[in-house]
Design a protein around this nucleic acid. Structure first.
Lengths: 189, 189
DNA sequence: TAACAAAACTAACGCTTGTTAGTTAGAAAT
DNA sequence: ATTTCTAACTAACAAGCGTTAGTTTTGTTA
């Protein structure tokens, strides 16, 4: 019976506020008020605002990194890999929709090693995706459009999925996966 | 020979800074420093920070509104309308790429009438786009996937185009239009 | 050259920010 | 019953924020 720590609670509340108003707009006093305590009390559990941000972002970034590595290592066609990536994005979106706002909009407010770690993960992720697409084109599975256009088009849709997920409520995720995969992939083949 | 006013210069510099760091992160002193003057001097030309933001955002929002109305009023097929919308987005992205960062990320920091005007324009825009897609499905031009999935997928790609445009430099826009239209549309038909 | 307007300046205001120091209340462990 | 630990508190700090008031510089027009 695992109960969530006070620190995790802070991170959870902060995620929601960052989602609603953005990292820079949310003050430590805002976070504290939302928990019915004083701002100074937060520092019994966390080292500072920056730590809250980096924990939110890096945790999800690692999920993406691991998920992508799993897909890459599978012995399936390029198109099937793209399908798996799309499904992974949808799964992560469902589980971390609020954290994704910070990841997408506030990553540039990370500092030093956290910032460079994030940027590296994102670059590696994109590079893996790019390779899948290029491979698919070489094998004749994917139409030979500019690979960057394909990459960008899919990635931008997946990255903003969190916005849409919240707005529409929990439309059945299986329906979403099926239609999203169809719409994104049928343009490629 | 129209020369740009000091106010327009402020808005231009602010757009660049907002693009790089976001509205909340950029201070009036940052904007002033970038122009080699003091913060207080800005107020000889503009009424406040909020006015800078609203001028940047609403100008582009109106471009989109007008562009969409033009497309809607044309007597062409639904698919051709979608093509026109995509091309319009690319054109606006080229001409206003920095302003689009504020429009996408900082619109929620607009106040009162500016905020509601923006939200209305955005809702109308989406509704027009939705109608085009539904009409295309009814006429059998567009495959009968969930219309919201199609709308979201195209719109999220177009809305984040500004990020990609800056990064890749001025890849020939005609090539971009052709490939982007192909990738986004071929999934629909 | 004197008058005027535009656009810069200095100085300061009240407020909010993230954060620190030191203290206190209550529960758990000895 | 006493110590220890946890997690809250009050009070305050220095720095930064958007903005205002009043003044000086600069360039143009009468």
């Amino acid at each position: 019976m695992k109960t969530i720590s006070r620190k995790e609670e802070i991170i959870q509340v902060a995620s929601r506020l960052f989602y609603e108003k953005g990292y820079k707009t949310v003050s430590m006093r805002d976070i504290a008020t939302a928990m019915d305590i004083k701002a100074a009390s937060l520092y019994n559990h966390i080292n500072g605002k920056q730590e809250i941000l980096s924990e939110i972002i890096l945790k999800v970034a690692e999920e993406f990194t691991v998920g992508m590595e799993n897909v890459v290592s599978e012995k399936i066609s390029a198109i099937e890999k793209v399908e798996k990536v799309i499904e992974m994005h949808i799964d992560i979106t469902v589980n971390y929709s609020e954290a994704l706002a910070a990841l997408n909009n506030d990553w540039m407010h990370l500092e030093k090693s956290n910032l460079s770690a994030f940027v590296k993960m994102r670059e590696d992720y994109e590079e893996n995706f790019r390779k899948i697409i290029k491979q698919g084109i070489e094998m004749g599975e994917i139409k030979a459009h500019h690979p960057e256009v394909i990459l960008f088009s899919i990635l931008s849709t997946l990255r903003t999925l969190y916005l849409w997920y919240q707005k529409r409520g929990k439309l059945d995720m299986n329906i979403l996966k099926r239609d999203m995969v169809a719409v994104l992939i049928k343009g490629l083949i």
